[in-house]
Design a protein around this nucleic acid. Structure first.
Length: 336
DNA sequence: AAGCCGTGGAC
DNA sequence: TGTCCAAGGCT
């Protein structure tokens, strides 16, 4: 839709743009994907639903390039849900490496256990059953239903939201939080044909990832530049400033540093060592017995953080609460 | 519903 | 260097 047409005056229950124009957009975006879409292993027809599910969890807030090598390791090591379920949480968290948000690893492990125990080791095709699994929310449930099982289901991720905001709403960015209107729009935009709807979901997501990006969109490469409402409106600025994620000095930073120590350490780590700072570490030097060079490096980084004891305790407490760490006596380790 | 939860590449 | 942000989910 663009300013040459009066669709913007229509109410929210109407169609987003003329049927003919929508069909043209479908064809243009899907054709673009067939030419410019990336060859990713979880898009191979031979990839199992389990492989798709693992990829979707890993891709939550983590870029493709960082997921690729870990995904391959996981599928080689744990080719079915039961294989992952048989592993210990500690091994799972270590294999997760530095993908970030390690709670995802625990939830995926829990989901694998549930699939192995209650779904005959087969990833469920039903959207409601997918949604009931730990770590699987509305996006991931829809993504697995669509990309693993070829269903016609409305997928709404950050890429699709951004493309919709620009192409149809003429805004630079989608709203801060997902709205019912966005989901309704995504639903209205989907082709009726099942196979086409799958391609559409895949293609729009890829367009948002490669061309219609958050910063510096490559509009000169866009297959629907001429139809874009944001372009027609003169590329207006966002009507709000995205709130950046703080990092330095936060509990998250301390949690990350503690997790790095636990991941690298082959044996439980003294809680005193985890909770002290650089100055305190001097006094504890006599208690450090061959932690291993890598563990020592991670400890150094943890000690170097400008975090008071109270914050270090809070961070470790959070990890214990989340099941990412366990404590036995005066030692802590990854959960066994 | 607004904030929390990791990590590192790009600019 | 600092800031932004990436196929979200959970509380």
């Amino acid at each position: 839709m663009n300013s040459r047409l009066p669709w913007g005056l229509m109410n929210s229950s109407s169609t987003p743009c003329a049927p003919d124009q929508l069909h043209g957009i479908h064809q243009a975006v899907i054709q673009w994907f067939s030419r410019a879409g990336r060859d990713l292993p979880w898009r191979e027809p031979a990839c199992s639903p389990w492989g798709v599910l693992v990829s979707e969890i890993m891709l939550q807030q983590t870029p493709v390039v960082r997921v690729l090598p870990i995904w391959r390791e996981w599928l080689d090591r744990w080719p079915t849900p039961a294989d992952l379920a048989a592993a210990s949480p500690a091994d799972v968290v270590r294999a997760w490496g530095r993908l970030g948000y390690p709670r995802r690893a625990l939830r995926l492990h829990a989901a694998a256990t549930e699939i192995a125990d209650h779904h005959d080791n087969q990833v469920p095709e039903n959207h409601s059953e997918l949604l009931a699994l730990p770590g699987i929310g509305s996006y991931t449930a829809a993504a697995v239903a669509v990309f693993a099982f070829g269903q016609r289901y409305t997928v709404v991720d950050t890429n699709i939201r951004r493309v919709q905001a620009r192409l149809f709403s003429g805004k630079a960015l989608p709203s801060k939080t997902l709205t019912a209107a966005e989901t309704r729009l995504a639903d209205q935009l989907m082709p009726e044909d099942i196979a086409e709807s799958v391609k559409w979901n895949q293609s729009v997501m890829e367009l948002g990832a490669l061309v219609c990006t958050a910063r510096s969109p490559k509009c000169d490469e866009c297959p629907v530049f001429d139809q874009c409402a944001w372009i027609a409106a003169g590329r207006p600025e966002p009507d709000y400033v995205p709130k950046g994620q703080s990092w330095h000095g936060t509990d998250r930073q301390v949690r990350g540093a503690i997790m790095a120590v636990l991941r690298h350490s082959p044996s439980p780590v003294s809680v005193d060592l985890l909770l002290t700072d650089r100055a305190g570490a001097e006094q504890l030097a006599s208690r450090i017995e061959n932690p291993g060079q890598q563990t020592a490096d991670m400890l150094e980084k943890l000690w170097a953080l400008p975090a008071p004891l109270e914050q270090r305790e809070r961070a470790l407490g959070g990890l214990l609460k989340d099941g990412l760490a366990t404590r036995h006596g005066d030692e802590a380790s990854l959960p066994s």
